[in-house]
């Protein structure tokens, strides 16, 4: 069973893939092939996403048409900007595995690994 947060992610995924605005009814139909969901559930999820600033909506006849505020790529870029800025930041909230190296350091690391591999090959 998916949680509510998973549904938000699912709806966003479908909207990004569809690349055009959708009503709650249309989203319900899109999801119908894999999930049996109540109309009100999908409506609540899309309304939540609108409130949180992920979706915009426009009245089309009697129903709202929802569409993502930004592309998946844009949000992913924002996520990564936070990660890359982390080490220069005063607050160490994101502990990154390794910071970006300069070209010089990267080649020194490569050399160290190559030397080691050569030594291992020589031994065996």
């Amino acid at each position: 069973m998916r949680t509510f947060g998973d549904l938000e992610s699912l709806v966003m995924d479908r909207l990004w893939n569809a690349d055009r605005p959708a009503t709650v009814r249309e989203m319900l139909d899109t999801l119908a092939s894999e999930r049996q969901l109540a109309y009100t559930t999908v409506m609540t999820v899309m309304d939540n996403l609108y409130r949180k600033g992920w979706l915009t909506r426009e009245l089309d006849g009697k129903a709202y048409r929802y569409q993502p505020v930004s592309s998946r790529r844009d949000y992913s870029a924002e996520l990564m900007r936070q990660v890359l800025a982390g080490s220069g930041d005063e607050v160490a909230t994101l502990l990154r595995f390794v910071d970006s190296m300069t070209d010089q350091e990267a080649s020194a690391v490569r050399d160290a690994l190559l030397d080691r591999r050569r030594a291992d090959d020589h031994d065996s």
Partner: peptide
């Protein structure tokens, strides 16, 4: 070596030799 490779975004978060 793989994850520390110079990122296209430039010099952000340079390790100052720590990775080596």
């Amino acid at each position: 070596a793989l994850l520390g490779r110079a990122s296209p975004s430039g010099t952000l978060g340079a390790t100052g030799g720590q990775a080596l």
